[in-house]
Design a protein around this nucleic acid. Structure first.
Lengths: 320, 320
DNA sequence: TCCATTCAATTGACTTTATCAACTGAATGG
DNA sequence: CCATTCAGTTGATAAAGTCAATTGAATGGA
């Protein structure tokens, strides 16, 4: 009998609309990462505990006051399954159930000292395996990997983002911020290369003339990833200029812009400036709202086509 | 009985050495992505086929000449397990075994037409789920997500990278390249902000003065991610200058640099220049090798400290 | 040419996981 | 106060995971 078989279909990425192509790329990544995770998880094979058990132990090691229902919800495990697995773990003396004070149905699960002892070497082995996977990479590449992973996390679940840090710029940061701004305004507002040129030059001048006593940079960082920035430059003894404010789109609406603008205002006031001024464009509505709320007043506006599409340039001032 | 329980340990990221901190960040990402993949895989719940079966079907749909052993190796499934699962799938008429011509032990597995029919709606459902996950993102954010995923893949497994494309720059690309160069030279060679300033200004001037008849940009792209670049600018009618060559570290040693330099040489020759010149520094040994192999000759060198650490600036010329 | 070795594929035995449904006893909210 | 919801358990059954053993076919030197 000659079996009735079919030839495989290649993924014809090039001919798809961009959205579909992205979906396909994400699926490729998912399969790729499924296998990597699979390899890592096999690290637990050496131990007498199963992956499911270890996942529960890990969860308990890093959280407090967890119930069986919490675990099954969060690890995506069937409650019945969970009940049996927990039973086994209790039997082995790795975990203990504590009756909930307020709710007689619930009981809180926690690791015992023995459970912690069992988990420690498993975690160490996991860490060794992850570290081995990073072995071939330069520190720079490891940094990029971590940054790329942080991007994936933040883009898929903005609420997972860690705490915001605001710090001065370090070498390389200014160029990074310029690149992000260029990308943002090109993609969202179709600004052309004249905008890219302008901010590249602003950056070069800032780097050349930077005077830390009279000027400042504020880089907003989340999980070691730059998510926004702003600069204050000296125009003259009386007037400081706020420049290059931006916040990554997925991090907007969490007060980062406000904190950056506030930092500028505080700095300008502290250093004895009388006015803080800035130039922006009407299409940047979110930024305008920030300025307005910080007390800036629109003092001039003129239509222009400096960057391709018709815009209205606006000067905003804040008297300090 | 008062159970002997232990309080959880927070991940004290801040106090760790950077390498360990990176390992910890990777582990956090792994757990995060494990859950996401888990959610996606539940998409197959509606069908009468199990995840293992679908994974096999998917693999068969996109590859040719696969044996049972190949599948169990690549999907990380026990050969015994695989044998039984394949048996079930053959029984259901989704796949067929074809005896291998050369090796009587082996048999090649392939999808039947029916198998393809069964898989199609499952794949469509998967795509719908992935697309739903991207729904909340702007196109710009989707682009960043895909780019970040491509970074993760390329950094972890450079050999997975797709085909190289070389194209002219588009708005935003020059600023991006400047940012990558600044980061690279700051991290690897401790260049200071004067380097960042210099290349920002070079970029601004390039964008302002760009003359497509006499000048060119070559952006190397893999999987829609910029992995290298180089520019050719006009110095005078006789002399063209090669500028800002760089290749991302994880993509080196695959001929990308050579192809970029070749593109420059070809362009300069085509446009009637007599000489192609460039300025670089002794520490950039990989780049120097590229220039040498392309026929450039070192014509001048002078020590300097323009960017912080002591360097030897070098001028290389190629007579066209 | 032969034979120990390796390899593809299967089978057996057994444990654990996955999934669905049913059930108990305890909160909860009109 | 009572229908409803919820935490947790138990039962049944199919599938997955794991380890060991087996068959028959290649393979690579001695």
């Amino acid at each position: 009998m000659l079996p009735d078989v079919e030839p495989p279909t290649p993924i014809a990425a090039a001919t798809m609309p961009p959205r579909d192509r992205s979906v396909e790329r994400v699926r490729v990544f998912n399969r790729f990462y499924t296998r990597r995770l699979d390899l890592l998880d096999r690290g637990f094979l050496a131990s007498p505990y199963t992956l499911g058990e270890v996942r529960i132990l890990w969860e308990l090691a890093h959280r407090e006051g967890v119930s069986a229902a919490d675990l099954s919800r969060e690890l995506g495990i069937d409650p019945g399954q969970m009940s049996r697995t927990l039973g086994r773990l209790v039997g082995a003396g790795l975990i203990a159930r504590v009756a909930d004070a307020g709710d007689a149905r619930r009981s809180t699960i926690a690791l015992t000292a023995h459970g912690r002892e069992v988990l420690a070497p498993l975690e160490a082995e996991q860490r060794r395996r992850v570290a081995a996977g990073l072995r071939g990479l330069t520190p720079e590449a490891v940094g990029r990997l971590v940054a790329a992973m942080a991007d994936v996390e933040r883009l898929l679940e903005p609420e997972r983002a860690g705490d915001l840090m605001i710090r001065p710029h370090r070498p390389g940061d200014v160029a990074f911020v310029v690149a992000r701004q260029a990308r943002l305004y090109v993609d969202d507002f179709s600004f052309d290369e004249r905008f890219e040129e302008l901010i590249s030059r602003v950056a070069a001048d800032f780097l050349r003339d930077f005077d830390p006593r009279r000027e400042a940079s504020f880089i907003a960082e989340v999980d070691e990833r730059i998510v926004g920035a702003v600069f204050v430059t000296r125009k003259d003894d009386e007037v400081a200029k706020l420049r290059l404010l931006h916040v990554e789109s997925e991090m907007r609406g969490r007060g980062i812009g406000t904190r950056l603008v506030d930092a500028c205002v505080r700095f300008a006031r502290e250093r004895g400036y009388r006015t803080l001024t800035l130039w922006t464009n009407d299409v940047l509505v979110e930024a305008r709202r920030l300025y307005e709320r910080a007390g800036f007043r629109l003092v001039a506006s003129e239509p222009h086509r400096m960057f391709g599409p018709p815009l209205v340039g606006e000067t905003w001032d804040l008297t300090l």
